[in-house]
Each structure stands twice: as structure tokens, then as C-alpha cells.
Amino acid sequence: MSSILNLTEDHRDCLQEITNVAMGQAGDRLARLLGTFVVLSIPHIEVMAPSDIAMALNSIDGNDSVSGVCQGFIGGGISGEAMIIFNDTSFSDLAKLMKYDDELDEHAERELLMDTTNVLFGACLKGIAEQIDLEFSYGPPMVLGQHMHLTEIIQQNNNRWDHALVTEINYQLEGYNVNCDLLIVLTDSSLDILLKKLDYLLY
């Protein structure tokens, strides 16, 4: 955790602003795709262990049924993964917005999950990379689980890191019951380079 401990309030504020811009771009793309207004929370940035994440997602009750997707990224010495957690109550409204008329079975829900995830991950990670002058390569998105408790979804992913810098933002669609949390997890080994990038922007 040595690099993470060097994270100052200025670094946190700078990273929050970078993330805010990138998440805004992702929200704008989603809004144009779905034809509705996207409400974003302020990015929350914290050093976390995997077990902390479930508690940090205040918008999702730990007993709620959720579905999740993750995608790894790497570039310029920075690596991490993006995760998105959807409350399962989102699927029926997502299907309406995506004009999906077929039966909403598990396969259809998986398609909706992946389509929405691709828009958010693509725009958000691209936005962050551009602001810190990097290009990321992406792994294939993977479904962490469908219709599971939040703690079970997080446990699917908790063997990859001990502590990481986690940025979390909540997306909601105005007038619809669609609620998701997007997390960007940066590993401890990436922090030295990230801090240098932030220092360059700050000073």
C-alpha cells in the first residue's frame, strides 16, 4: 500500500475531476443512446479492500439481487479493471429503452447488460486515458454474475487484489427504475505512474 499512502488531497481532487469529466462523457453517450436524461453522482474515491466495496455501494442494498460485469485494462504502466453493478430491477426498463421486444430471459438480460456496459466502459475509460495522455488496451468484458447478492458478486472478483484505489459513481436514468454503479479499480502497482501523471497536471 506504499504508493496508495502517498495519495494527497490534491491528487484525490484532481483524479475526481478527471473521472467526473470521463463519467460525464459516458453518461452523455448513454443518454443519447437511450433518449433519456442520465443522473450522475459525484465520483467517490477511496482506498479499499475487496470486502469494503459492498459497503461502499450505498445505493444498493446488500440483500438486493444484482448483476455485474468487469473488464480489465492496461496501458503505459497503469492497469486495473472497470466493474459495473446493476440492480436487477433495472432490466425491464432497460429493455423498454433499448426497444428490446423479445422475451426477457437470462440470455436477453445478459445482452442488455453487455450493451449498456460497452457504452459506459468504452466512453469512461477512453475519457480518463485521454486526460492523462495514455492509451489503454482492453480485455474482453466478463459477466461476474447474474441475479446474485452484491456480496456474492464482489467475492467473484476479490482474489485479484488486496488493496486498490477505487473510484465509484452511480448512474440513474431519470423517470426509469434503472440504477447502476460503475467502479474503476486501480492496482497498487499502478499508483506510482498515476501519481506522476497527476503531479504533471497539478504543477
Rank of each mutant, 00 (worst) to 15 (best):
L112A: 04
L113G: 02
L113I: 00
L113M: 14
L113K: 01
M114C: 04
M114S: 06
M114P: 00
M114G: 02
D115G: 00
D115W: 00
T116C: 14
T116H: 10
T116M: 14
T116R: 11
T117I: 01
T117K: 06
T117G: 04
T117S: 13
N118F: 07
N118Y: 05
N118Q: 08
N118E: 05
N118S: 12
V119L: 05
V119F: 07
V119P: 03
L120D: 01
L120S: 01
L120A: 06
L120K: 03
L120N: 00
L120W: 00
F121S: 02
F121V: 02
F121M: 04
G122Q: 06
G122A: 12
G122V: 02
G122S: 14
G122P: 02
A123Q: 05
A123C: 08
A123D: 04
A123L: 03
A123E: 04
A123T: 00
C124R: 05
C124Y: 09
C124S: 14
C124D: 01
C124G: 06
L125A: 12
L125F: 05
K126T: 13
K126V: 05
G127F: 09
G127K: 08
I128E: 00
I128P: 00
A129Y: 04
E130D: 15
E130F: 13
E130V: 11
E130M: 12
E130A: 13
Q131S: 09
Q131K: 13
I132D: 00
I132A: 05
I132F: 10
D133A: 05
D133I: 08
L134K: 15
L134A: 10
L134S: 12
L134R: 15
L134V: 09
E135F: 10
E135R: 13
E135S: 11
F136V: 07
F136P: 02
S137Q: 13
S137L: 11
S137K: 06
S137C: 09
G139I: 00
G139D: 15
G139N: 15
G139E: 15
P140G: 14
P140Y: 13
P140A: 15
P140T: 15
P141N: 10
P141Q: 08
P141V: 13
P141M: 11
M142A: 10
M142H: 09
L144G: 01
L144D: 05
G145S: 03
G145W: 08
Q146R: 12
Q146F: 09
Q146N: 08
Q146I: 12
H147W: 07
H147A: 14
M148Q: 15
M148E: 12
M148S: 10
H149I: 14
L150Y: 05
L150G: 01
L150V: 06
L150C: 05
T151I: 09
E152G: 10
E152I: 10
E152P: 09
I153A: 14
I153M: 13
I153N: 03
I153E: 11
I154N: 00
I154G: 00
I154K: 08
Q155R: 10
Q155D: 12
Q156A: 08
Q156K: 07
Q156I: 10
